[in-house]
Amino acid sequence: MKAPSIIAVAGVSGFLATVLAASGSHSFNLTGAEAGFFQQANEFHFYHTFALVATAVLAKWGKERTATTAALMFIAGILCFSGSLYIRAIMGPGSLGSFHWVTPVGGMLLMVGWLAMAIGSTRNT
């Protein structure tokens, strides 16, 4: 992925994270565990939106392959990890049904994104 494409995705992700944060605070009326799930989803969503911006920097440094790998892992991780927690928070326990495995897979994808950045940024390409 080229840096401008990654920045565009990061912009949309940041916008969605902001909209969801506002909705979580003012519209969804979440309490207890659901509020905690939502907050964790939103924090990770924001953190990894900033990580996407960092991958754009890598792409500009000529590490486009590394940036692409990391960016795709971050995008998939945000969708799986944060997305599943948002659903769980809003729709309640059991709402993921047989897809309860999506949350830990999303977390692993986020970890792989960080490792891709760390390892790929030190390699000469």
Rank of each mutant, 00 (worst) to 15 (best):
M1V: 10
M1F: 07
K2T: 09
K2H: 08
A3I: 12
A3C: 10
A3L: 11
A3F: 14
P4K: 05
S5C: 01
S5M: 10
S5N: 04
S5E: 03
I6W: 09
I7D: 04
A8T: 15
V9F: 14
A10F: 12
G11I: 06
S13K: 09
S13Q: 10
G14L: 08
G14M: 11
G14C: 10
A17I: 03
T18Y: 00
V19G: 01
V19S: 01
V19K: 02
V19Q: 01
L20K: 05
L20G: 04
A22H: 09
S23D: 04
S25C: 05
S25A: 15
S25I: 05
H26C: 00
F28N: 11
F28A: 07
N29D: 14
T31G: 06
G32S: 04
A35F: 00
G36H: 08
F37A: 08
F38E: 03
Q39S: 08
A41L: 02
A41F: 01
N42T: 14
N42L: 04
N42K: 06
N42G: 11
N42H: 08
E43L: 06
F44Y: 15
H45F: 11
F46D: 14
F46P: 15
F46V: 15
Y47H: 09
H48P: 04
H48E: 01
T49A: 08
F50R: 07
A51D: 09
A51T: 10
L52F: 10
A56E: 07
V57N: 05
L58G: 09
L58A: 10
L58P: 14
K60L: 15
W61F: 08
W61Q: 13
W61V: 00
G62C: 06
K63Y: 07
E64G: 12
E64W: 00
E64T: 15
T66P: 02
T69P: 03
A70F: 08
M73Y: 10
F74E: 01
F74W: 05
A76H: 02
G77F: 11
I78R: 06
I78W: 13
I78Q: 07
C80V: 00
F81N: 01
S82A: 10
S82H: 03
G83I: 08
S84M: 05
L85M: 08
L85K: 06
Y86P: 07
Y86E: 07
I87R: 07
R88A: 09
I90V: 11
M91R: 11
M91N: 13
P93G: 00
S95D: 12
S95A: 13
L96K: 10
L96V: 10
G97W: 12
S98C: 12
S98G: 15
F99M: 13
F99A: 15
V102M: 10
V102R: 03
V102C: 04
V102Q: 04
T103H: 01
T103D: 02
P104T: 07
P104G: 04
V105C: 05
G106S: 06
G106H: 09
G106T: 09
G106F: 06
G106V: 10
G107H: 09
G107F: 08
M108P: 03
L110D: 03
M111C: 11
M111D: 03
M111I: 14
M111G: 06
M111V: 11
M111W: 05
G113L: 02
G113A: 03
G113R: 03
W114R: 00
A116K: 04
M117T: 06
A118D: 02
A118K: 09
I119F: 15
G120K: 02
G120C: 02
S121C: 11
S121Q: 08
R123N: 01
N124R: 15
T125K: 13
T125S: 14
